[in-house]
């Protein structure tokens, strides 16, 4: 069977509910290269998921447990052969060996085996943007086979948390009481990208302080406009993921965010921005190898120039040969 026939067969099987075929397709997406490009071309006319939700937060705040609860909330409803909700759980790869331990399923034991739910663990495989490079294609594949809601859970700090806004319609930031200074540190990143805040472990002391601190920071001018003047003010909601307290309220608030996006035309806007972001990123990927190669060739002894001047030279050279081999469509 040719590769194209194999992909078509897998897509057909996945649309009829084959978990195995869907698992295979996601591996194709993860692997990248020509097969992933051929798969992605098949996504051009396919519907995206109705909704993509990102969940971010530092390790240890109960993110996976919270995700499992939200998945259970998203899974309730009419069920066809294809899972209603899929989770992509991203964990870091070892920079030294490329290996990874992907442990997010441990917290999803209850929901991971439900027929309405599909869980996929992904290692970020050294992606410098933080999120696994395959996530955007994986989301398209999930949507194309009929998954309604995709929840992307990412671990970590900084870049990883910021990258999530380029794949998710709605971003939920998970925190826990007692963060204190950590909330301060996160101000410049997390507080600007999240659409909702879950203060998890709300059965512990300090939850009122954490909620108040967050509310104050949000009131200090972080509410974002929608383009037509109707701003979205991220709500702050206490949750106890281990026993389910506050989960229904959090999920309802997330749904309200989606409705706000739809009502204000924001959904289409964030999706357009997302595609542009991915295009730009992949264009940089295509050029990166040639920039590195050209840089390695430079004979630094030929001129006394600053690194900035050399860089301008490299960029000019690479752009002048933009149609050179090695830049075939990826």
């Amino acid at each position: 069977m040719s590769r194209d026939d194999a992909l078509d067969a897998l897509l057909t099987d996945a649309r009829h509910g084959s978990r195995r075929a869907l698992g295979r397709l996601l591996s194709v997406a993860e692997r990248g290269g020509d097969a992933a490009s051929a798969l992605d071309r098949r996504m051009l006319d396919a519907p995206p998921p109705l909704w993509t939700v990102g969940i971010v937060g530092a390790p240890g705040v109960g993110k996976s447990t919270l995700t499992a609860r939200l998945v259970a909330a998203a899974a309730d409803g009419p069920t066809g052969p294809v899972p209603r909700v899929a989770v992509i759980a991203v964990d870091p790869s070892s920079p030294l060996t490329g290996g990874a331990i992907l442990g997010d399923r441990i917290r999803m034991q209850g929901v991971g085996s439900r027929p309405e739910v599909f869980v996929r663990s992904m290692a970020h495989r050294g992606d410098d943007g933080g999120l696994a490079r395959a996530v955007p294609i994986a989301i398209r594949v999930l949507g194309s086979v009929g998954v309604a809601t995709v929840i992307v859970e990412t671990v970590g700090v900084g870049q990883i948390e910021l990258e999530i806004i380029h794949v998710a319609d709605t971003v939920i930031a998970a925190m826990s009481p007692g963060w204190g200074d950590a909330i301060q540190a996160a101000k410049a990143g997390l507080l600007e990208v999240a659409d909702l805040f879950a203060v998890n472990k709300a059965d512990r002391p300090g939850v009122a302080d954490a909620v108040r601190d967050l509310e104050q920071m949000l009131d200090a001018g972080l509410a974002r406009g929608s383009g037509d003047g109707r701003a979205w003010r991220p709500p702050v909601l206490p949750t106890v993921a281990t026993d389910g307290t506050g989960i229904d309220g959090l999920w309802s608030a997330a749904e309200a965010h989606r409705e706000w996006l739809v009502a204000t035309g924001g959904l289409q806007r964030v999706r357009d921005e997302r595609i542009r972001h991915e295009i730009g990123r992949r264009a940089k990927d295509l050029l990166a190898g040639r920039i590195d190669a050209r840089t390695a060739e430079l004979d630094l002894a030929t001129a006394r120039q600053t690194p900035g001047q050399w860089a301008a030279l490299v960029a000019a050279d690479v752009c002048a040969h933009a149609d050179a081999p090695g830049t075939s469509a990826a």
Binding site: G99, I101, S121
Partner: peptide
Amino acid sequence: LRDAGFEVIYLG
């Protein structure tokens, strides 16, 4: 296995 370059999905 992680150190040998595998991606380990740990179910526990």
